[in-house]
């Protein structure tokens, strides 16, 4: 037992004080909009076209933004509180990556940012997130499809984080200092995401008959979207040649090693499913999406679009 002061009013009364005060240090996300790239060397690297760099950043950003949205839909819906907290962490990490990458895209080539009414206070990252049409989004389709059960989100994060971690590990060497900084931070986050999903993959595979059945079904369902993660788009090829980006095809072998290991440990067979077709060769990276993305964006963008002159 501890001895507390008998004085009734009161040891923690200070919490009531200073609600109008100006102790900004306690605000985790700052008291105002701040440039997320403040302090990072944002000079454009030589030898890369600004529009290619911007498009590449948008691709990486959209993957993170769109999957963050899907994972955040799990909030208050997870199987247990611990999982609710873990999934929120993953969604927050991806959202943080998206913000930095969108800001970088806008800095590299301001023409990628949608035009808003004169005098609009909406910052570039929000203009890009909330005022683009689905056809301007460059994310892979794996990130956007509707959520399923818990096994589905585990498989989706496993596939996504395994590929993105491999990309980010190499992107740390990017000649673009901003991308290198984003990648250095992202590697730590994605290692956790992959580990989290990998452990649940094993648990569900080895848990009960029901959990194994659901896991296998979810993996089968998502597998046709997996090859798109490892395909190299012309823009990715261009920025990789310039030493600024990474070709997904170049990390395919190491991604495969990791996935084969998870499958083997879990005694789950590699699904025998062919890749999902695009439309005349166009897929998510080209702005050709599933029907799910339009519905998702309708929800995501509704408040921002109603207030193009609004301050948040």
């Amino acid at each position: 037992m501890s001895h507390s002061t008998p004085d009734p009013n009161d040891a923690h009364g200070s919490v009531f004080d200073g609600l109008l005060g100006s102790d900004d240090s306690q605000w985790a996300f700052g008291t105002d909009f701040e440039d997320p790239l403040a302090g990072v060397d944002t000079t454009m690297p030589e030898g890369v076209a600004p529009d290619a760099l911007a498009t590449y950043c948008v691709m990486l950003a959209d993957d993170a933004l769109v999957l963050s949205h899907r994972v955040s839909e799990w909030c208050s819906n997870a199987p247990d509180l611990e999982e609710d907290i873990a999934l929120a962490n993953i969604a927050l990490d991806l959202l943080g990556q998206a913000r930095l990458l969108l800001a970088r895209a806008a800095a590299a080539d301001p023409t990628v940012v949608p035009a808003l009414p004169e005098g609009s206070p909406v910052p570039p990252e929000d203009a890009l997130a909330f005022f683009r049409e689905a056809g301007d989004f460059r994310n892979v389709r794996l990130a956007e499809v509707d959520n399923g059960d818990f096994a589905h989100v585990v498989c989706r994060i496993l596939l996504f984080a395994t590929v993105r971690l491999a990309l980010m590990e190499r992107l740390r060497e990017s000649r673009d200092r901003v991308l290198a900084a984003v990648a250095a931070k992202g590697v730590k986050e994605l290692a956790y995401h992959r580990d989290y999903a990998g452990r649940w993959f094993l648990t569900l595979a080895q848990g009960t008959d029901e959990s194994r059945r659901r896991l296998v079904a979810a993996l089968e369902d998502l597998w046709p979207l997996y090859p798109e993660l490892l395909a190299t788009h012309a823009v990715e090829d261009e920025v990789a040649t310039a030493g600024v980006g990474v070709r997904p095809a170049d990390v395919a072998a190491e991604v495969e090693v990791v996935l084969e290991q998870v499958l083997a440990m879990s005694a789950v067979e590699r699904p025998d499913r062919r890749a999902l077709a695009g439309v005349r060769g166009r897929t998510g990276r080209d702005g050709l999406h599933t029907e799910a993305l339009g519905r998702m964006l309708a929800e995501m963008q509704v408040t921002a679009r109603a207030h193009p002159m609004g301050q948040w």
Partner: peptide
């Protein structure tokens, strides 16, 4: 969460 008006919010 899914309808927040800015990424920071």
């Amino acid at each position: 969460i899914t309808r927040a008006p800015s990424l920071r919010r």
